[in-house]
Amino acid sequence: MWWKYLAGTLLAAVSVAVFILPPPQAQIGEASRIFFFHVPAALIGFVGFVFSAVYGARYLQRRDPAFDRKAAVAAEIGLTFTIIATFTGAIFSRVTWGMFWNWDPRQTSILAVLLIYGAYFALRQAVPFRDTRARLSAVYLLLAGVLVPLLFFVLPRLYPSLHPNNSLVSGGGEFAMTLPVGLTFGASLLSFLLLYFWLHQLADRAGRITEKLES
């Protein structure tokens, strides 16, 4: 319970601190502040994906419908955060590179994640029986989970990345992790993670109640 108060306080504090604490980045200026929302959102999108695959595997092991419900919940939250990351990334891309979308490796891999989530929910909607749906969607997510990481070996060969991870933050050192930047980023990451668990708990409870009402 206590951690929900922490999450709320942190989220509020971070929303303010992002605009006050870290200095604007030398090269791109004020636009750099989107970093504090974009990166945690992308990470949470990935966390949702991993949790969803893990719950799917647990379902296949135990055949407990609760695991399937949790897998779907993790995927829903993951998809939401991935969409947020895609949009904030595109805005940042427009400001710094001049266009919303340029098939940077990061943009390609986030598109792959979006497509998988989309396919996952299309599959879930297409299967009416609960057990079959749980089984098939878990299998699909696990197959995607072993194949899509190959993109990280494939894409860098295609285009050099302009993503700030390579060119700004570590490369030139212009956006170095000074104490105010690191503190704000750490707090933002923690608050997003807590928000994820909170949302997960809420959605899982709502799903459980819906199941009870339907049966």
């Binding site: 792959a112 998988i116 599959l123 079959t132 995607a144 494939v154």
Partner: peptide
């Protein structure tokens, strides 16, 4: 096999396959 067990026809096979095939298409 997933599509066959799901009992759905039509576009679902392509929808499920293409994201997984992306790492293959590029190289």
């Amino acid at each position: 096999s997933v599509v066959a067990v799901a009992g759905v026809r039509g576009a679902l096979f392509s929808v499920l396959s293409l994201p997984v095939l992306l790492p293959l298409l590029v190289p």
